[in-house]
Design a binder for these strands. Sequence first.
DNA 1: CATTCTTACGTACTGCGTAAGAATG
DNA 2: CATTCTTACGCAGTACGTAAGAATG
Lengths: 303, 303
Amino acid sequence: MMTFKQLEAIYWVAKLGGFSQAAQKLHTTQSAVSKRVLELEAAFGTPMFDRTLRASRLTEKGEEMFAIAQDLLDRREAAIERFAQVEQPERRLRIGVTELVAMTWLPRFVAAVHARFPRTLFEPDVDDSFSLRSKLLLDELDIAILPDLFDDSRIAKTTVGKVRNIWMAKPGLLGRNHLNVHDIAAQRVLTQGGRSATGSLYEEWFRDAGISSTNRIVSNSLMAIIGMTVSGLGVAHLPQACLQPMLDLGMLEGLQVFPPVPDVGFAVARKSDRHSTVIDMLVETARESCDFGQAFQASEQPS
Amino acid sequence: MMTFKQLEAIYWVAKLGGFSQAAQKLHTTQSAVSKRVLELEAAFGTPMFDRTLRASRLTEKGEEMFAIAQDLLDRREAAIERFAQVEQPERRLRIGVTELVAMTWLPRFVAAVHARFPRTLFEPDVDDSFSLRSKLLLDELDIAILPDLFDDSRIAKTTVGKVRNIWMAKPGLLGRNHLNVHDIAAQRVLTQGGRSATGSLYEEWFRDAGISSTNRIVSNSLMAIIGMTVSGLGVAHLPQACLQPMLDLGMLEGLQVFPPVPDVGFAVARKSDRHSTVIDMLVETARESCDFGQAFQASEQPS
DNA sequence: CATTCTTACGTACTGCGTAAGAATG
DNA sequence: CATTCTTACGCAGTACGTAAGAATG
């Protein structure tokens, strides 16, 4: 049932163009390699190599499996590498944030942290909440700032703020301004996918109203969703405060919708088993500098 | 050497809180599970469980390995799932783009495609070039629009445009306006990491000038970098056209730097072994609608 | 003393290597 | 006929299950 050995086999056969070469690379015989590949083919009921030709060429399915093998083997390698490294107490802060945070107060946060830790190398990582959580658990991040919408005993959280989102659309796209769930569902809805915490919030919201499928465009990027909303491709539920300038400019129109989608709380998250005063201070700094209001465009303007 | 069986063992022991429970789950004996865990511990020279207590509790290293196990097992599961699915000819276009594309012409592109394929479900995925390439190979995307900076026989590309980046900083951050590589290196440089194709371009640029290490803030998000640049945290090499409004407003200042970093070409990429008229038409549409000039803020304003 | 994990030991079977067979150009 | 992969077969060592031992509360 798909072992690493099988994956190594298909990987090196494809890479080196032959079973014997792969065998050499894997310090075994070509017979053994052949069998590992045959196992894999049997397990998935499809040939991975085209044997009609003299040189081993991947089939279509084989290409797919090769990509899978490459991915899984790379990840194993990387994981081992990371694990082997001793806990390096280097001054390097890897901080994960969602796109909304990146758009709004990340610059201020970074500036505030730099004031306290001038010699620290900063690495802001912008990703969806789901990935951020994984990266925290894999120790690829020191802290993460994300929507407070899940619970995991391995992660400790500190609430830092709340964001008010409202439904928006290109002005004039909808006739009225007072709407309900079903009016929204009748439109094309632009949302973040299920990997985003806020994205799953809407799915729940629709489900609660008994609505299963809607016409949607799903993207993992808030930026892309804002752009598409401005272009009139549909309605989206977007942070009010940081888009206020666009509302004021008439590029977007806010919609009154009932029932409201609940507000989203944000939290600073870190792995429960990692304790450090640096991280504690980071959390403190985050709480102080937290502000989802102003998008970067308007902040710290030179006079 | 780290097999899936070992990972399954540590995963289920941690999850179910006992070797016997894990054994039951894995359809084997608790003795076998014990040995698989011991193997893993031997391989990495560190205990994963704290056996002083009655209930099996993960050690710190164990937590780390647990996260790795979870990650790799999930990915194997997902890969098998994906592989098993027959080539579903569903009308669902997963298009990968980099952040720059998401900021600029993605809305227009989506609008153009919707005009041609009105009943198609669109899923724009914004990620770094490296990830986009992986996702293409894993068939998680139908096409991707990314910097034309790598070659891979498994991926077919069509050039669609070019982007001019220039060095920028908060006005007044640097005294002069005419600079060279070393002046830039003396500043704090905000760049995208090595996972970004353009990010690796700068590393080459610095290396060519004989500069190895610079004071840097690395982020995977263009958005975050723009924000931090506006805040005066450092200098960055950013797309000129789409930030022209910010240059005009005096939020950013363009810098003349010698030697110039080469321009970046963009291409539509797809897997070589996937042929479809829909994809061909997408490529065509992309070429026609391509425009990195205007950030979304200014596009399609309602009169 | 019941529960939980490790150790010991004999076994079964998986997976391997050698070598022969089939297919290809 | 040289090269490349598959099959056949016997062997070896891995990994397993049973059962006993050690540790814990």
